[in-house]
Nucleic acid binder design. Structure first.
Lengths: 216, 216, 216, 216
DNA sequence: TAATAACCGAGACGGTACGTCTCGTCTTAGG
DNA sequence: CCTAAGACGAGACGTACCGTCTCGGTTATTA
């Protein structure tokens, strides 16, 4: 009799299903309000009002305001990067650097990043989300460096983790600490540093890279 | 916040003067409690109790809890650095890198930094305090790089601002973003990168001898 | 304060309705604590705790602590009197006088009356509540005097308002001003005064009153 | 040498003597502010400011705010009554009744009386001040009644305490409780009541002649 | 078709921290 | 030793927000 897909764990629950509309409205309202007033001044009641939703509807989805904020940050970060492969190590690295530059020159990202970082330092859930995200992203970036090594543009004993930190470090340092300019000059200087600093010991030249380059 | 008497003629105000003891007790209690429970769980009432002070005594000094937190952060940052001058550019840079490493492996700094950064991104007062601090600190660091240029260890068209960001960037990136290890390996890798990446175009003559110096 | 729904069609408000249980608990706790510590030492936080209620729940109902106190006084006064009709004017008056005596020898009434009076002198709302209460009560008492007039025990041009003030005046004067004894002697002396002082000019004797009486 | 009245125990204290000016300024300011805002809204700081005095100067004279209020009330009450002796019991009583009427139709007295009474009900010090005042005042009033008895206008077994309460009771009842009119009609009605209600049993002989007097 | 169950918006609930206010004391410099 | 000014410790006030609960009502699946 009543065998309803015992293998499929789907288990359709009884009762009225949750409204997908509310899910989206809550996240949108949260992101808007975070951008407007900052994370600290975010009020759950305001989110509910802006989303046209009862507070209980939020708390049915998120255990706490911090969880809501965490999920909203997660939604921000969900975009995927595309690994460039132009044949030129310099161009590939520059593409990555400029992409990041643009991402954090945009209003929302730059505005919320400090709060995101603060939140991560305190919340287990966010930190592990960060780890998943980082692992994924760096897996992509790593390919670019590996191609550079294969081409002979970068030394083959390159510390990949460190190289990735050098690619993003100065940018984030300016963004978060010194308030220095985040621009193309920064991106190209970073790339140039990497190419020189991590160049192979012996000066054998690149196989696939375009030869001439007069930096800037 | 603290500059009250612009010059010595400052008119002595009537009435009982503020107790310097209370100023210190409030800041100490604030820093202690921030380290213990985090910035978010800081309670003004607890600060008052720990400092042996009435709440009004705190609010006579600070307009709000946020102001109190900001000033406490300011107190954290007031320490001065010493510029090393060993004769070796590599050694000097390594000293600086290791100093920073140690500073942010310590409990308090690392624990509070994300909150400090978040706070700075929102509060004008803290940001300008940050600028003063940064300007001062970088003025010292710059000397090390200039000596390196003079020695011929670093290219003479070096972008000093960028070089400073490279020195600290990877460390802060790991600290704030990737949660990567902050250790001597990081410090020495960073220094090595700088020496190679910013090496003069022409094969360098000497390393430790102070030769010609066409600074800038 | 309490009149919300002007007629039966009253629009049912949305949201969770107020809890009648809380209304009662707040008033009870207020009266208890006023009796225990006096009106001046009444703490809103204590009321909330005793009532098992949050402070906001009190402030949702009352604009301020004074409003709460006013309403609590109002609740004290809501009791109804029963007009005696024994056939004897003297007995009826004595009954009334003794009732009042007892009411204000009891702890709560006597303890809170001075504060109530003080509060009334300052607060519009309480004063009008007092007026409603007084009008109602005196309407009842008036009947007793009117029966006395009809029986010929009291002069028919009796100033009823004044007579009522004489019935209660000495008692309240002792209670509030002189701290004199509030007892049966006072009650019977008052009644005797009224019977003699307001007796008809011509000595025609009562029709319905019991004849002989040797007071005490 | 320096012998300054060694016998007079006066004990001239060393140091600067207290300023009598301050005493008066404090009391004046207190009475003004009590009349303006009510006793409850009286702030010690406001009194000090209005009196042009430091708070400590107030607290050197009064142990607490309640003490200050008590003393201010005392200052209100310090006036002495003059016992009338016209030869007519009715006229004397009427004089007393009208005097009281006028006293409490004035703004300040009427305005502060409820607060005074409330304060008395709670504070030992004020209550005993009240007792002293009452004893003194009633000693004077009593004479009028005794003369009435002597003249044969009042019964000689008159309960003097009760008679005094009747004289003032209705007035205070209206003043404090019913908010009824305080006027000459009330005064004369009260006097008439007393004369009839406390008339001698046997038909009175004379009215104004001083006959026998068995004063107690 | 009716019953059941979980959903929905609205808003009251208990609790807790905030920032303000007042009390009565204490600490200045000065009379 | 007094004075005016005003900071001090203590603690209550009234507000704001969190996360839960309670309404009347809606939208699905189950019987």
């Amino acid at each position: 009799m009543r065998a309803l897909s015992p293998d499929q764990s789907a288990r359709r629950p009884v009762g009225r299903p949750r409204e997908a509309r509310a899910d989206r409205a809550i996240l949108s309202a949260t992101l808007e309000l975070m951008a407007e007033h900052g994370v600290k001044a975010l009020r759950v009641g305001e989110v509910a009002a802006r989303a046209g939703v009862g507070k209980a509807t939020i708390y049915r989805r998120y255990r706490s305001k911090d969880d809501l904020v965490a999920d909203a940050f997660g939604a921000l970060v969900d975009e995927q990067i595309e690994v460039p492969d132009s044949g030129s190590t310099r161009d590939d690295l520059l593409t990555l650097a400029l992409e990041t530059t643009e991402l954090y020159t945009g209003t929302l990202g730059a505005k919320l990043l400090p709060s995101l970082i603060d939140e991560m330092s305190r919340r287990e859930g966010l930190a592990s989300a960060r780890d998943r995200f980082m692992t994924e992203r760096r897996k992509g970036l790593r390919v670019v460096f590996e191609r550079g090594i294969a081409r002979g543009d970068l030394r083959h004993d390159l510390d990949l983790e460190f190289a990735l930190d050098v690619l993003a470090g100065p940018l984030f340092y300016r963004l978060l600490v010194t308030n220095g300019p985040i621009d193309e000059a920064l991106a190209s200087a970073t790339v140039e540093l990497i190419l020189r600093g991590f160049a192979p010991e012996s000066p054998r030249r690149s196989q696939h890279t375009k030869k001439r380059h007069n930096s800037k």
